[in-house]
Computed example of a mutant assay.
Amino acid sequence: MLRLALTLTATALLAACAMQPMATMRSYDQAMLPAAVQVPAGNRVAMETVGVGSITYECRVKANAASEYEWFFVGPDARLMDRSGKQIGRYYGPPATWENTDGSKLTATQVAVSPAAAGSIPLQLVKANPAMGNGAMTGVTYIQRVSTQGGVAPAMACGGNNLGARQVVQYQADYIFYKAM
C-alpha cells in the first residue's frame, strides 16, 4: 500500500512538472564583470554553457626575441555542457570554434580580455562571426568566457632543451552566448 502511494505521488509530481511552462532564461549579471568584457546593450543571453576540458601549450621561440622562449597557446579542446550537466557541444581550435550538437557552429574575433583569479585564464569577450549551419549557434552575436578556473601556461621552464615540447593543462570556464534583441 505504501509503495502504491509513493508511486502515485511521484507520478503526480512528474505530471505537474511536465505541465509547467519552461522557465525563461535569466539575464546573466553583467554588473559583476569588468567593463571591458561586458556585452554591449541590445543583446540578450541565449545560452549558458560550462566548458570543461584542456588547453595545449607548446614551447616556442618568443616572437621578436630569438634568444627567449615562451609557452605558446596552441588551442583548446573542451566539452560544452548545459547547466544540468548534459553535453550540448564542443569548443576547439584553432581557429577557436564553438560547435553545438545540432551541427551549427561559429568562430569569433576577440574584442577584449580582463584578468581572472591567479592561476586562471583571463575573462574574455568575443564577437561572433556568422554561424555555419542552422541551429543554436545561428544568430549568436557575442560570447563571454567567465568564471574561469585553471588553463594558464605550464609552470615548468620553457627553453632550448624542450623547444617544441607540448603540455596540456586542464581548465573550466562558463561560456555565455548572446543574441541581438
Rank of each mutant, 00 (worst) to 15 (best):
L4C: 15
L6S: 15
A10H: 15
T11K: 15
T11L: 15
A12I: 15
A12G: 12
A12P: 09
A16R: 13
A18M: 10
M19C: 12
T24D: 09
T24S: 11
Q30M: 13
V37N: 00
N43S: 07
R44F: 06
V45F: 04
M47L: 15
E48M: 13
G51V: 05
V52Q: 15
S54K: 10
S54Y: 15
S54E: 14
I55F: 00
R60P: 02
V61L: 02
K62H: 03
A63P: 07
A65F: 09
A65S: 09
E68K: 10
Y69L: 04
Y69F: 06
W71H: 03
F72L: 10
F72N: 08
V74M: 07
V74N: 00
A78E: 05
R90S: 14
Y92H: 14
G93M: 00
P94F: 02
A96C: 03
T97G: 00
N100G: 08
T101V: 12
T101N: 11
D102V: 04
S104W: 10
T107K: 01
T107N: 04
T109H: 12
Q110M: 09
V111Y: 11
V113Y: 00
P115M: 01
A116D: 07
I121K: 00
P122E: 02
L123R: 04
L123I: 07
Q124R: 04
P130Y: 01
P130F: 03
G135Y: 12
A136H: 11
A136L: 15
M137G: 12
M137C: 11
G139P: 01
Y142P: 03
V146G: 03
V146C: 04
V152Y: 04
A153G: 12
A155H: 10
M156I: 13
C158Y: 07
G160W: 14
N161T: 13
G164I: 12
V168Q: 14
Q170P: 08
Q172F: 05
Y178L: 04
A180H: 09
